[in-house]
Design a protein around this nucleic acid. Sequence first.
DNA 1: TGGAGGGCTGACCCAGCGTCAGGGTCAAGC
DNA 2: GCTTGACCCTGACGCTGGGTCAGCCCTCCA
Lengths: 264, 264
Amino acid sequence: MLTISRLAAYAGVTVRAVRHYHQIGLLPEPERDRSGYRIYDAAAVVRLIRIRSLADAGVPLARVQELLGAGPEEFAGGVQEIDKDLRAEIRRLQDTRRRLARLAAGEHLALPQSVVDYLDRLRGLGVEERYIEMERDAWIMIAAQVPHRIDAVIAKKHEELDDPDMVKLYGILDEALDWPVDDLRMVEIADLLERLMIRAVEAGEVGGDDGIDDQFVDLLDSTMVESSPGAARLLAILEERGWKGWTRIERVPADRLDTELPPS
Amino acid sequence: MLTISRLAAYAGVTVRAVRHYHQIGLLPEPERDRSGYRIYDAAAVVRLIRIRSLADAGVPLARVQELLGAGPEEFAGGVQEIDKDLRAEIRRLQDTRRRLARLAAGEHLALPQSVVDYLDRLRGLGVEERYIEMERDAWIMIAAQVPHRIDAVIAKKHEELDDPDMVKLYGILDEALDWPVDDLRMVEIADLLERLMIRAVEAGEVGGDDGIDDQFVDLLDSTMVESSPGAARLLAILEERGWKGWTRIERVPADRLDTELPPS
DNA sequence: TGGAGGGCTGACCCAGCGTCAGGGTCAAGC
DNA sequence: GCTTGACCCTGACGCTGGGTCAGCCCTCCA
Protein backbone atom coordinates (compact mmCIF):
# COMPACT_ATOMS: atom_id res chain seq x y z
CA MET A 1 0.00 0.00 0.00
CA LEU A 2 2.37 2.64 1.33
CA THR A 3 5.98 2.48 0.21
CA ILE A 4 8.88 4.03 2.04
CA SER A 5 9.16 6.98 -0.33
CA ARG A 6 5.49 7.86 0.01
CA LEU A 7 5.68 7.50 3.76
CA ALA A 8 8.68 9.79 3.79
CA ALA A 9 6.93 12.32 1.56
CA TYR A 10 3.83 12.39 3.76
CA ALA A 11 5.92 13.07 6.82
CA GLY A 12 8.24 15.46 5.08
CA VAL A 13 11.45 13.54 5.68
CA THR A 14 13.92 11.72 3.47
CA VAL A 15 13.85 8.01 2.80
CA ARG A 16 17.28 7.78 4.35
CA ALA A 17 15.99 9.33 7.55
CA VAL A 18 13.19 6.78 7.77
CA ARG A 19 15.66 3.95 7.43
CA HIS A 20 17.86 5.61 10.03
CA TYR A 21 14.96 5.70 12.48
CA HIS A 22 14.40 2.00 11.86
CA GLN A 23 18.04 1.37 12.56
CA ILE A 24 18.02 3.15 15.90
CA GLY A 25 14.71 1.58 16.82
CA LEU A 26 12.74 4.80 16.83
CA LEU A 27 10.28 3.65 14.21
CA PRO A 28 9.43 -0.06 14.27
CA GLU A 29 10.31 -2.05 11.17
CA PRO A 30 7.05 -2.73 9.29
CA GLU A 31 6.00 -5.83 7.40
CA ARG A 32 7.63 -6.56 4.07
CA ASP A 33 5.94 -7.52 0.85
CA ARG A 34 7.10 -10.61 -1.00
CA SER A 35 9.93 -8.76 -2.68
CA GLY A 36 11.26 -7.41 0.56
CA TYR A 37 9.85 -3.89 0.27
CA ARG A 38 8.72 -2.29 3.49
CA ILE A 39 5.00 -1.62 3.56
CA TYR A 40 3.58 0.98 5.93
CA ASP A 41 0.21 1.99 7.25
CA ALA A 42 -1.23 5.28 8.42
CA ALA A 43 -0.07 4.67 11.98
CA ALA A 44 3.51 4.81 10.75
CA VAL A 45 2.84 8.16 9.11
CA VAL A 46 1.46 9.52 12.36
CA ARG A 47 4.34 8.23 14.41
CA LEU A 48 6.85 9.57 11.93
CA ILE A 49 5.25 13.00 11.97
CA ARG A 50 5.36 13.06 15.75
CA ILE A 51 8.98 12.02 15.74
CA ARG A 52 9.77 14.86 13.38
CA SER A 53 7.90 17.45 15.36
CA LEU A 54 9.85 16.53 18.46
CA ALA A 55 13.13 16.35 16.58
CA ASP A 56 12.47 19.71 14.91
CA ALA A 57 11.86 21.13 18.35
CA GLY A 58 15.40 20.21 19.24
CA VAL A 59 14.81 16.94 21.05
CA PRO A 60 17.75 14.60 20.43
CA LEU A 61 16.60 11.43 18.69
CA ALA A 62 17.82 9.39 21.63
CA ARG A 63 15.23 11.10 23.85
CA VAL A 64 12.38 11.21 21.38
CA GLN A 65 11.32 7.68 22.20
CA GLU A 66 10.83 8.27 25.91
CA LEU A 67 9.03 11.53 25.34
CA LEU A 68 6.61 9.94 22.87
CA GLY A 69 5.68 7.36 25.44
CA ALA A 70 5.62 9.71 28.41
CA GLY A 71 2.68 11.07 30.33
CA PRO A 72 2.07 14.81 30.59
CA GLU A 73 4.28 15.53 33.57
CA GLU A 74 7.21 13.40 32.43
CA PHE A 75 6.80 15.07 29.08
CA ALA A 76 6.92 18.54 30.59
CA GLY A 77 9.94 17.59 32.68
CA GLY A 78 11.79 16.19 29.71
CA VAL A 79 11.01 19.22 27.59
CA GLN A 80 12.25 21.51 30.32
CA GLU A 81 15.51 19.67 30.57
CA ILE A 82 16.03 19.88 26.84
CA ASP A 83 15.28 23.57 26.96
CA LYS A 84 17.95 23.94 29.62
CA ASP A 85 20.45 22.27 27.32
CA LEU A 86 19.44 24.58 24.50
CA ARG A 87 19.87 27.64 26.70
CA ALA A 88 23.30 26.46 27.78
CA GLU A 89 24.31 25.87 24.18
CA ILE A 90 23.13 29.32 23.17
CA ARG A 91 25.05 30.90 26.02
CA ARG A 92 28.12 28.98 24.97
CA LEU A 93 27.83 30.27 21.43
CA GLN A 94 27.27 33.83 22.57
CA ASP A 95 30.34 33.54 24.74
CA THR A 96 32.22 32.28 21.74
CA ARG A 97 31.03 35.27 19.72
CA ARG A 98 32.27 37.62 22.39
CA ARG A 99 35.71 36.02 22.34
CA LEU A 100 35.71 36.16 18.57
CA ALA A 101 34.87 39.86 18.65
CA ARG A 102 37.78 40.53 20.98
CA LEU A 103 40.02 38.57 18.65
CA ALA A 104 38.87 40.61 15.68
CA ALA A 105 39.18 43.91 17.50
CA GLY A 106 42.77 43.54 18.59
CA GLU A 107 44.10 40.85 16.29
CA HIS A 108 46.19 39.91 19.31
CA LEU A 109 46.07 36.16 19.24
CA ALA A 110 46.15 34.54 22.64
CA LEU A 111 47.36 37.66 24.37
CA PRO A 112 45.54 39.85 26.88
CA GLN A 113 45.50 43.58 26.27
CA SER A 114 47.95 44.33 29.06
CA VAL A 115 50.66 42.28 27.37
CA VAL A 116 49.98 43.88 24.02
CA ASP A 117 50.40 47.30 25.64
CA TYR A 118 53.63 46.20 27.24
CA LEU A 119 55.02 44.98 23.92
CA ASP A 120 54.01 48.30 22.37
CA ARG A 121 55.99 50.10 25.03
CA LEU A 122 59.04 48.01 24.17
CA ARG A 123 58.51 48.86 20.52
CA GLY A 124 58.39 52.51 21.49
CA LEU A 125 61.77 52.13 23.17
CA GLY A 126 63.24 51.12 19.84
CA VAL A 127 63.50 47.40 20.52
CA GLU A 128 63.71 45.42 17.32
CA GLU A 129 60.70 43.51 16.05
CA ARG A 130 62.63 40.26 16.02
CA TYR A 131 63.26 40.47 19.72
CA ILE A 132 59.72 41.59 20.42
CA GLU A 133 58.44 38.47 18.74
CA MET A 134 60.52 36.38 21.08
CA GLU A 135 59.12 38.27 24.05
CA ARG A 136 55.62 37.92 22.66
CA ASP A 137 55.90 34.16 22.34
CA ALA A 138 57.14 33.91 25.88
CA TRP A 139 54.25 36.02 27.10
CA ILE A 140 51.78 33.86 25.16
CA MET A 141 53.01 30.89 27.14
CA ILE A 142 53.02 32.72 30.44
CA ALA A 143 49.54 34.13 29.89
CA ALA A 144 48.29 30.62 29.19
CA GLN A 145 49.95 29.37 32.37
CA VAL A 146 48.71 32.00 34.83
CA PRO A 147 45.94 33.92 33.09
CA HIS A 148 44.59 35.28 36.37
CA ARG A 149 47.89 36.85 37.35
CA ILE A 150 49.20 38.01 34.03
CA ASP A 151 48.06 41.62 34.56
CA ALA A 152 49.88 41.81 37.89
CA VAL A 153 53.03 40.37 36.36
CA ILE A 154 52.90 42.86 33.53
CA ALA A 155 52.37 45.72 35.96
CA LYS A 156 55.60 44.75 37.67
CA LYS A 157 57.37 44.71 34.32
CA HIS A 158 56.14 48.21 33.67
CA GLU A 159 57.62 49.31 36.98
CA GLU A 160 60.94 47.78 36.01
CA LEU A 161 60.89 49.76 32.81
CA ASP A 162 60.79 52.97 34.88
CA ASP A 163 64.41 52.25 35.74
CA PRO A 164 66.69 53.88 33.14
CA ASP A 165 69.13 51.00 33.39
CA MET A 166 66.41 48.61 32.31
CA VAL A 167 65.58 50.82 29.36
CA LYS A 168 69.22 50.89 28.42
CA LEU A 169 69.40 47.13 28.70
CA TYR A 170 66.47 46.55 26.40
CA GLY A 171 67.82 49.10 23.95
CA ILE A 172 71.01 47.16 23.57
CA LEU A 173 69.98 43.58 24.21
CA ASP A 174 68.51 42.78 20.80
CA GLU A 175 71.69 43.83 19.05
CA ALA A 176 73.88 42.15 21.63
CA LEU A 177 72.38 38.78 20.91
CA ASP A 178 74.01 38.86 17.49
CA TRP A 179 77.47 39.84 18.71
CA PRO A 180 80.20 37.25 18.66
CA VAL A 181 80.33 35.40 21.95
CA ASP A 182 83.76 36.74 22.79
CA ASP A 183 82.77 40.34 22.27
CA LEU A 184 84.02 42.28 25.27
CA ARG A 185 80.88 44.43 25.41
CA MET A 186 79.08 41.30 26.52
CA VAL A 187 80.71 41.77 29.91
CA GLU A 188 79.36 45.31 30.11
CA ILE A 189 75.87 44.01 29.57
CA ALA A 190 76.42 41.42 32.24
CA ASP A 191 77.48 44.21 34.59
CA LEU A 192 74.37 46.15 33.76
CA LEU A 193 72.22 43.12 34.37
CA GLU A 194 73.90 42.34 37.63
CA ARG A 195 73.32 45.86 38.90
CA LEU A 196 69.66 45.51 38.13
CA MET A 197 69.48 42.17 39.86
CA ILE A 198 71.20 43.31 42.96
CA ARG A 199 68.80 46.21 43.20
CA ALA A 200 65.90 43.81 42.76
CA VAL A 201 67.19 41.53 45.48
CA GLU A 202 67.65 44.46 47.82
CA ALA A 203 64.13 45.63 47.11
CA GLY A 204 62.94 42.15 48.08
CA GLU A 205 61.53 41.55 44.65
CA VAL A 206 63.13 38.20 44.16
CA GLY A 207 62.19 34.80 45.48
CA GLY A 208 58.45 35.18 45.86
CA ASP A 209 56.27 32.38 44.57
CA ASP A 210 55.16 33.41 41.14
CA GLY A 211 52.84 30.45 40.64
CA ILE A 212 54.76 29.22 37.64
CA ASP A 213 56.15 25.71 37.87
CA ASP A 214 59.88 25.12 37.67
CA GLN A 215 59.84 23.00 34.56
CA PHE A 216 57.98 25.71 32.75
CA VAL A 217 60.58 28.26 33.77
CA ASP A 218 63.26 25.91 32.46
CA LEU A 219 61.41 25.73 29.17
CA LEU A 220 61.31 29.49 28.81
CA ASP A 221 65.00 29.76 29.74
CA SER A 222 66.09 27.09 27.32
CA THR A 223 64.16 28.80 24.55
CA MET A 224 66.05 31.96 25.37
CA VAL A 225 69.39 30.16 25.42
CA GLU A 226 68.73 28.43 22.12
CA SER A 227 67.65 31.61 20.44
CA SER A 228 71.21 32.82 19.98
CA PRO A 229 74.77 32.09 21.05
CA GLY A 230 74.95 35.56 22.56
CA ALA A 231 72.14 34.77 24.94
CA ALA A 232 73.82 31.58 26.05
CA ARG A 233 77.05 33.43 26.63
CA LEU A 234 75.32 36.07 28.70
CA LEU A 235 73.70 33.51 30.94
CA ALA A 236 77.00 31.70 31.31
CA ILE A 237 78.75 34.83 32.49
CA LEU A 238 76.05 35.52 35.03
CA GLU A 239 76.14 31.95 36.23
CA GLU A 240 79.84 32.29 36.98
CA ARG A 241 78.96 35.24 39.15
CA GLY A 242 76.38 33.30 41.10
CA TRP A 243 73.13 34.11 39.28
CA LYS A 244 70.89 31.47 37.89
CA GLY A 245 68.11 31.65 35.33
CA TRP A 246 66.60 34.33 33.21
CA THR A 247 62.86 34.15 33.37
CA ARG A 248 63.06 33.85 37.11
CA ILE A 249 66.44 35.02 38.26
CA GLU A 250 67.84 33.67 41.50
CA ARG A 251 70.91 34.29 43.56
CA VAL A 252 72.84 31.10 44.15
CA PRO A 253 74.39 31.24 47.66
CA ALA A 254 78.15 31.02 47.61
CA ASP A 255 78.32 27.80 49.61
CA ARG A 256 75.99 26.04 47.21
CA LEU A 257 77.93 27.25 44.24
CA ASP A 258 80.63 24.70 44.92
CA THR A 259 78.47 21.77 45.81
CA GLU A 260 76.50 22.24 42.64
CA LEU A 261 79.52 21.86 40.46
CA PRO A 262 79.54 18.45 38.90
CA PRO A 263 81.91 16.06 40.71
CA SER A 264 84.95 15.84 38.47
CA MET B 1 62.72 17.77 26.79
CA LEU B 2 59.04 18.41 26.36
CA THR B 3 56.78 15.39 26.12
CA ILE B 4 53.34 15.39 24.62
CA SER B 5 51.57 15.42 27.95
CA ARG B 6 53.51 18.41 29.20
CA LEU B 7 52.94 20.20 25.93
CA ALA B 8 49.24 19.49 26.24
CA ALA B 9 49.19 20.65 29.84
CA TYR B 10 50.93 23.93 29.01
CA ALA B 11 48.44 24.68 26.29
CA GLY B 12 45.48 23.45 28.27
CA VAL B 13 44.41 20.72 25.88
CA THR B 14 44.29 16.95 26.04
CA VAL B 15 46.98 14.68 24.67
CA ARG B 16 44.41 13.22 22.32
CA ALA B 17 43.67 16.66 20.91
CA VAL B 18 47.36 17.25 20.19
CA ARG B 19 47.59 13.97 18.30
CA HIS B 20 44.43 14.91 16.46
CA TYR B 21 45.98 18.19 15.36
CA HIS B 22 48.99 16.28 14.10
CA GLN B 23 46.70 14.00 12.18
CA ILE B 24 44.89 16.80 10.41
CA GLY B 25 48.13 18.64 9.77
CA LEU B 26 47.34 21.59 12.01
CA LEU B 27 50.36 21.10 14.22
CA PRO B 28 53.48 19.75 12.48
CA GLU B 29 54.77 16.40 13.70
CA PRO B 30 57.89 17.07 15.79
CA GLU B 31 61.07 15.07 16.04
CA ARG B 32 61.02 11.76 17.88
CA ASP B 33 63.45 10.51 20.47
CA ARG B 34 65.07 7.12 20.07
CA SER B 35 62.07 5.31 21.47
CA GLY B 36 59.63 7.02 19.19
CA TYR B 37 58.32 9.59 21.66
CA ARG B 38 57.45 12.95 20.22
CA ILE B 39 59.66 15.76 21.59
CA TYR B 40 58.47 19.34 21.41
CA ASP B 41 59.93 22.78 21.83
CA ALA B 42 58.50 26.08 23.01
CA ALA B 43 57.44 27.02 19.49
CA ALA B 44 55.03 24.10 19.53
CA VAL B 45 53.54 25.36 22.78
CA VAL B 46 52.99 28.78 21.27
CA ARG B 47 51.44 27.40 18.12
CA LEU B 48 49.20 25.11 20.10
CA ILE B 49 48.01 27.93 22.31
CA ARG B 50 47.17 30.00 19.26
CA ILE B 51 45.31 27.12 17.70
CA ARG B 52 43.27 26.77 20.85
CA SER B 53 42.48 30.43 21.15
CA LEU B 54 41.10 30.43 17.62
CA ALA B 55 39.25 27.16 18.15
CA ASP B 56 37.81 28.40 21.43
CA ALA B 57 36.59 31.45 19.58
CA GLY B 58 34.54 29.16 17.40
CA VAL B 59 36.82 28.86 14.40
CA PRO B 60 36.44 25.40 12.86
CA LEU B 61 39.76 23.56 12.90
CA ALA B 62 39.68 23.34 9.12
CA ARG B 63 39.90 27.14 8.97
CA VAL B 64 42.35 27.66 11.81
CA GLN B 65 45.33 27.00 9.57
CA GLU B 66 44.51 29.69 7.03
CA LEU B 67 43.70 32.21 9.73
CA LEU B 68 46.99 31.58 11.53
CA GLY B 69 48.86 32.32 8.36
CA ALA B 70 46.68 35.20 7.23
CA GLY B 71 47.43 38.88 7.18
CA PRO B 72 45.29 41.35 9.13
CA GLU B 73 42.60 41.94 6.50
CA GLU B 74 42.15 38.31 5.51
CA PHE B 75 42.03 37.59 9.20
CA ALA B 76 39.31 40.15 9.79
CA GLY B 77 37.32 38.86 6.83
CA GLY B 78 37.56 35.27 7.98
CA VAL B 79 36.58 36.17 11.50
CA GLN B 80 33.56 38.08 10.24
CA GLU B 81 32.39 35.13 8.21
CA ILE B 82 32.71 32.84 11.19
CA ASP B 83 30.76 35.29 13.28
CA LYS B 84 28.00 35.20 10.68
CA ASP B 85 27.85 31.42 11.01
CA LEU B 86 27.69 31.73 14.77
CA ARG B 87 24.84 34.22 14.60
CA ALA B 88 22.93 31.94 12.26
CA GLU B 89 23.45 28.99 14.57
CA ILE B 90 22.25 30.99 17.57
CA ARG B 91 19.13 32.07 15.69
CA ARG B 92 18.47 28.48 14.73
CA LEU B 93 18.71 27.39 18.35
CA GLN B 94 16.46 30.21 19.52
CA ASP B 95 13.93 29.22 16.91
CA THR B 96 14.15 25.69 18.18
CA ARG B 97 13.55 26.92 21.71
CA ARG B 98 10.44 28.75 20.59
CA ARG B 99 9.05 25.62 18.96
CA LEU B 100 9.89 23.64 22.05
CA ALA B 101 8.06 26.14 24.24
CA ARG B 102 4.95 25.82 22.09
CA LEU B 103 5.20 22.07 22.38
CA ALA B 104 5.47 22.26 26.14
CA ALA B 105 2.63 24.73 26.48
CA GLY B 106 0.00 22.73 24.70
CA GLU B 107 1.37 19.19 24.80
CA HIS B 108 -0.34 18.95 21.40
CA LEU B 109 2.23 17.02 19.43
CA ALA B 110 2.27 17.90 15.76
CA LEU B 111 -1.13 19.58 15.89
CA PRO B 112 -1.98 23.24 15.46
CA GLN B 113 -4.16 24.88 18.05
CA SER B 114 -7.22 25.04 15.78
CA VAL B 115 -7.31 21.27 15.51
CA VAL B 116 -6.87 20.84 19.24
CA ASP B 117 -9.84 23.15 19.77
CA TYR B 118 -11.90 21.22 17.29
CA LEU B 119 -11.13 17.94 19.02
CA ASP B 120 -12.08 19.54 22.33
CA ARG B 121 -15.42 20.49 20.85
CA LEU B 122 -15.99 16.89 19.83
CA ARG B 123 -15.07 15.80 23.32
CA GLY B 124 -17.63 18.27 24.62
CA LEU B 125 -20.26 16.62 22.48
CA GLY B 126 -19.70 13.39 24.31
CA VAL B 127 -17.69 11.65 21.62
CA GLU B 128 -15.63 8.83 23.04
CA GLU B 129 -11.90 9.24 23.54
CA ARG B 130 -11.18 6.22 21.39
CA TYR B 131 -12.85 7.79 18.41
CA ILE B 132 -11.26 11.16 19.09
CA GLU B 133 -7.85 9.55 18.92
CA MET B 134 -8.68 8.25 15.48
CA GLU B 135 -9.77 11.70 14.39
CA ARG B 136 -6.66 13.20 15.93
CA ASP B 137 -4.36 10.89 14.03
CA ALA B 138 -6.11 11.75 10.80
CA TRP B 139 -5.75 15.44 11.53
CA ILE B 140 -2.07 15.00 12.32
CA MET B 141 -1.59 13.64 8.83
CA ILE B 142 -3.73 16.30 7.21
CA ALA B 143 -2.02 19.11 9.07
CA ALA B 144 1.34 17.78 7.89
CA GLN B 145 0.05 17.64 4.31
CA VAL B 146 -1.48 21.11 4.03
CA PRO B 147 -0.25 23.11 7.01
CA HIS B 148 -1.12 26.44 5.39
CA ARG B 149 -4.75 25.50 4.88
CA ILE B 150 -5.46 23.50 7.98
CA ASP B 151 -7.11 26.41 9.79
CA ALA B 152 -9.52 26.98 6.90
CA VAL B 153 -10.38 23.30 6.74
CA ILE B 154 -11.07 23.22 10.45
CA ALA B 155 -13.22 26.32 10.21
CA LYS B 156 -15.40 24.49 7.70
CA LYS B 157 -15.63 21.55 10.06
CA HIS B 158 -16.83 23.86 12.80
CA GLU B 159 -19.56 25.13 10.49
CA GLU B 160 -20.65 21.58 9.81
CA LEU B 161 -20.94 20.99 13.53
CA ASP B 162 -23.49 23.79 13.68
CA ASP B 163 -25.87 21.39 11.94
CA PRO B 164 -27.77 19.36 14.58
CA ASP B 165 -27.76 16.32 12.30
CA MET B 166 -23.99 16.36 12.31
CA VAL B 167 -23.94 16.56 16.07
CA LYS B 168 -26.30 13.63 16.22
CA LEU B 169 -24.09 11.69 13.84
CA TYR B 170 -20.96 12.20 15.91
CA GLY B 171 -22.84 11.36 19.04
CA ILE B 172 -23.76 7.95 17.72
CA LEU B 173 -20.90 7.14 15.37
CA ASP B 174 -18.39 5.97 17.90
CA GLU B 175 -20.76 3.44 19.37
CA ALA B 176 -21.98 2.37 15.96
CA LEU B 177 -18.54 1.30 14.90
CA ASP B 178 -18.76 -1.54 17.39
CA TRP B 179 -22.20 -2.76 16.37
CA PRO B 180 -22.42 -6.01 14.45
CA VAL B 181 -22.31 -5.35 10.73
CA ASP B 182 -25.86 -6.56 10.20
CA ASP B 183 -27.32 -4.28 12.86
CA LEU B 184 -30.31 -2.59 11.31
CA ARG B 185 -29.53 0.72 12.97
CA MET B 186 -26.57 0.91 10.60
CA VAL B 187 -29.01 1.82 7.87
CA GLU B 188 -30.38 4.67 9.95
CA ILE B 189 -26.92 6.10 10.27
CA ALA B 190 -26.44 5.77 6.56
CA ASP B 191 -29.69 7.70 6.07
CA LEU B 192 -28.49 10.40 8.37
CA LEU B 193 -25.19 10.61 6.55
CA GLU B 194 -26.85 10.72 3.18
CA ARG B 195 -29.09 13.60 4.24
CA LEU B 196 -26.01 15.53 5.30
CA MET B 197 -24.23 14.81 2.08
CA ILE B 198 -27.12 15.83 -0.09
CA ARG B 199 -27.32 19.09 1.77
CA ALA B 200 -23.61 19.60 1.31
CA VAL B 201 -23.85 18.93 -2.40
CA GLU B 202 -26.75 21.34 -2.72
CA ALA B 203 -24.80 23.97 -0.86
CA GLY B 204 -22.02 23.47 -3.41
CA GLU B 205 -19.61 22.39 -0.74
CA VAL B 206 -18.45 19.30 -2.55
CA GLY B 207 -15.99 18.85 -5.33
CA GLY B 208 -13.68 21.80 -4.76
CA ASP B 209 -9.95 21.21 -4.92
CA ASP B 210 -8.81 20.71 -1.37
CA GLY B 211 -5.15 20.50 -2.24
CA ILE B 212 -4.81 16.99 -0.88
CA ASP B 213 -3.61 14.37 -3.27
CA ASP B 214 -5.81 11.40 -4.14
CA GLN B 215 -3.54 8.72 -2.82
CA PHE B 216 -3.42 10.46 0.48
CA VAL B 217 -7.21 10.54 0.65
CA ASP B 218 -7.21 6.82 -0.10
CA LEU B 219 -4.83 6.27 2.77
CA LEU B 220 -7.07 8.10 5.21
CA ASP B 221 -10.10 6.23 3.96
CA SER B 222 -8.46 2.84 4.21
CA THR B 223 -7.41 3.60 7.74
CA MET B 224 -11.02 4.37 8.56
CA VAL B 225 -12.23 1.18 6.89
CA GLU B 226 -9.67 -0.95 8.68
CA SER B 227 -10.46 0.59 12.04
CA SER B 228 -13.62 -1.48 12.49
CA PRO B 229 -15.99 -3.75 10.57
CA GLY B 230 -18.79 -1.28 11.29
CA ALA B 231 -16.99 1.45 9.45
CA ALA B 232 -16.44 -0.77 6.45
CA ARG B 233 -20.11 -1.73 6.44
CA LEU B 234 -21.19 1.89 6.57
CA LEU B 235 -19.05 2.83 3.61
CA ALA B 236 -20.33 -0.18 1.69
CA ILE B 237 -23.95 0.87 2.20
CA LEU B 238 -23.21 4.38 1.03
CA GLU B 239 -21.31 3.09 -1.96
CA GLU B 240 -24.37 1.15 -3.03
CA ARG B 241 -26.28 4.39 -2.96
CA GLY B 242 -23.81 6.15 -5.17
CA TRP B 243 -21.50 7.84 -2.69
CA LYS B 244 -17.79 7.31 -2.66
CA GLY B 245 -15.17 7.96 -0.01
CA TRP B 246 -15.20 9.31 3.48
CA THR B 247 -12.46 11.83 3.91
CA ARG B 248 -13.51 13.49 0.70
CA ILE B 249 -17.01 12.36 -0.16
CA GLU B 250 -18.07 12.38 -3.79
CA ARG B 251 -21.28 11.68 -5.64
CA VAL B 252 -20.73 8.98 -8.23
CA PRO B 253 -22.95 9.82 -11.25
CA ALA B 254 -25.48 7.08 -12.03
CA ASP B 255 -24.08 6.37 -15.50
CA ARG B 256 -20.60 5.84 -14.14
CA LEU B 257 -21.84 3.58 -11.42
CA ASP B 258 -22.26 0.76 -13.94
CA THR B 259 -19.09 1.26 -15.90
CA GLU B 260 -17.07 1.22 -12.71
CA LEU B 261 -18.28 -2.20 -11.74
CA PRO B 262 -15.56 -4.71 -12.43
CA PRO B 263 -16.18 -6.58 -15.70
CA SER B 264 -17.42 -9.96 -14.62
C1' DT C 1 12.61 -7.06 -24.01
C1' DG C 2 14.60 -3.22 -22.34
C1' DG C 3 14.69 0.97 -19.77
C1' DA C 4 13.04 3.96 -16.07
C1' DG C 5 12.14 4.44 -11.56
C1' DG C 6 11.45 2.52 -7.60
C1' DG C 7 13.35 -0.57 -3.52
C1' DC C 8 17.05 -3.23 -0.81
C1' DT C 9 21.55 -3.61 2.04
C1' DG C 10 26.14 -2.20 3.22
C1' DA C 11 29.57 1.09 3.70
C1' DC C 12 32.00 5.40 3.93
C1' DC C 13 31.66 10.49 5.14
C1' DC C 14 31.26 15.06 8.14
C1' DA C 15 33.73 17.39 13.41
C1' DG C 16 36.35 16.94 17.17
C1' DC C 17 37.89 14.49 19.70
C1' DG C 18 36.88 10.38 23.92
C1' DT C 19 37.95 5.99 24.89
C1' DC C 20 39.48 1.47 24.60
C1' DA C 21 42.93 -2.21 23.16
C1' DG C 22 47.33 -3.89 22.96
C1' DG C 23 51.41 -2.99 23.09
C1' DG C 24 56.57 -0.44 24.30
C1' DT C 25 59.53 2.72 27.51
C1' DC C 26 61.39 4.77 31.54
C1' DA C 27 62.56 5.85 36.29
C1' DA C 28 62.26 4.36 40.92
C1' DG C 29 62.08 1.16 44.62
C1' DC C 30 62.81 -3.56 46.28
C1' DG D 1 67.36 -7.90 38.27
C1' DC D 2 62.45 -7.50 38.80
C1' DT D 3 58.29 -5.17 39.56
C1' DT D 4 55.36 -1.21 39.55
C1' DG D 5 53.28 2.81 37.88
C1' DA D 6 53.30 6.47 34.88
C1' DC D 7 53.91 7.68 30.19
C1' DC D 8 54.24 6.91 25.32
C1' DC D 9 52.92 4.70 20.78
C1' DT D 10 49.44 3.26 16.89
C1' DG D 11 45.00 1.84 15.34
C1' DA D 12 40.28 1.62 15.58
C1' DC D 13 35.51 2.39 17.01
C1' DG D 14 31.97 5.67 18.88
C1' DC D 15 29.09 9.78 19.03
C1' DT D 16 24.91 12.88 15.84
C1' DG D 17 21.84 12.74 12.09
C1' DG D 18 21.67 11.44 8.43
C1' DG D 19 23.99 12.34 2.90
C1' DT D 20 25.74 9.91 -0.68
C1' DC D 21 27.47 6.35 -3.31
C1' DA D 22 27.66 1.37 -5.07
C1' DG D 23 25.78 -2.76 -6.56
C1' DC D 24 21.92 -5.38 -7.06
C1' DC D 25 16.80 -6.61 -7.17
C1' DC D 26 11.79 -5.66 -8.46
C1' DT D 27 8.02 -3.79 -11.09
C1' DC D 28 5.76 -1.48 -14.53
C1' DC D 29 5.18 0.39 -19.08
C1' DA D 30 6.06 0.80 -23.99
